[in-house]
Simulated scan of single mutants.
Amino acid sequence: MMLVGSLGLVIVLMIRAADPETWRWIAPDEASEEVAPDDPTRVPRDQIEVPRKAVAGDNGTEGEFRVVENRRPATPYTLGEKGKVSAEEARNRVWANTDALASVEDSSPFRASDFEAWSQIFDNMRDATAQDLSAEHAPLVQFGQLFQQSKLYRGKLVTIQGTIRRCVKLPPNPLDERAGNLWQLWVFSGGDNSPIVIYSMNLPEGFPVGNEIHEPASLQAVYFKKWVYSAKGGTMTAPLLLARNVNWQASATVNREITALEIAIGIGCTLLGAMAVVGFIWWNNRNRDSQVEKLVRSRNRKQFEENAADISVGESVRDQLGALSAQMKNHPSSEETDGQPTE
């Protein structure tokens, strides 16, 4: 009952602590003190009007009201910042023009109509600075976001984190020899069972290449489209992106294959160790009786001692030989009885 009561007290205190009125005596509201509750000029906070401005709507209709955005006022120190790009503008940057991106078709393989947008993204990424491709300008996304909101992310820089399971080298595209060789990466992000396909212009030094790898990495890549590819289960669809490089760190330990000699030595050492353990146990217990044997022997000894008085040992062998000798003395031998009549 004390534990249940203590738990109830804690819950009550939590509820009271969540109420702002509980702490009003510690930090009183200055605004409420300055204005009396019955002041007719006092305006409730939920009724404060947001400044609005009549501007032309998207459809050209005059008189539409919108909320005025809070922008930083122009000062002599900010009037010359034409070359600087804010973080929000960098996150919303589109790496190809609108007309080229509009011709990209989702849920399809590479088409000739995709070439212009792909080429523009490739050229812009190749000429971009490290700051342009930084993680702060690329929001972290998952498979579901790209798959469900393809048009929203098309042509924008995003961050992909996951495990690269496959890395293969692709030959140059005959339609664009400038691109050279690209690396096709199959990335599984988080708990997704479907891959994200990323084409990378470069690979870090020492990055493993193959169909079965397991390398955690992150990439800043531009989303292109939902790409259709052939798999064992049929035709599949995956988000397709283009990256300039892979953020990856080589592990400290280098994996290598175990030779047959090392396997044989390991098995031999295991057998020798097992034989040594068995021999040691046998040597220490060769003259020792088990607990079961000791218990049986003790039980038999006790039973013998209890029934010893009732056991008939009979006539010993020595007494039997003495009796036989006396019997032979009482009867004459065959030589003494020769020639005498018998009764």
Rank of each mutant, 00 (worst) to 15 (best):
L9K: 10
I11G: 06
I15K: 00
P20E: 03
R24T: 10
P40H: 06
R45L: 07
E49V: 10
V50D: 10
K53I: 06
G60K: 12
A74W: 05
G80F: 03
K84V: 11
S86K: 05
E88M: 15
E88K: 15
W95R: 04
A96W: 09
T98E: 15
A102W: 12
A102N: 12
S103A: 03
W118V: 07
D123K: 05
N124E: 14
L133Q: 11
H137A: 01
F143C: 00
L146F: 06
Q149Y: 13
L157M: 01
G162I: 13
L170M: 14
D176Q: 12
Q184A: 08
L185T: 08
Y199T: 11
P204G: 02
G206Y: 10
P208N: 03
P208F: 03
N211A: 07
Y223I: 06
Y223R: 08
V228D: 11
Y229P: 09
A238N: 15
N247S: 03
S251K: 14
V254K: 15
V254G: 07
N255R: 15
G268L: 01
L272Y: 04
G279W: 09
G279T: 04
I281M: 08
E293V: 14
K294T: 05
E305P: 03
E306S: 02
E306F: 11
A308S: 10
S312T: 13
K329T: 09
P332L: 10
S334N: 06
T337M: 14
D338C: 01
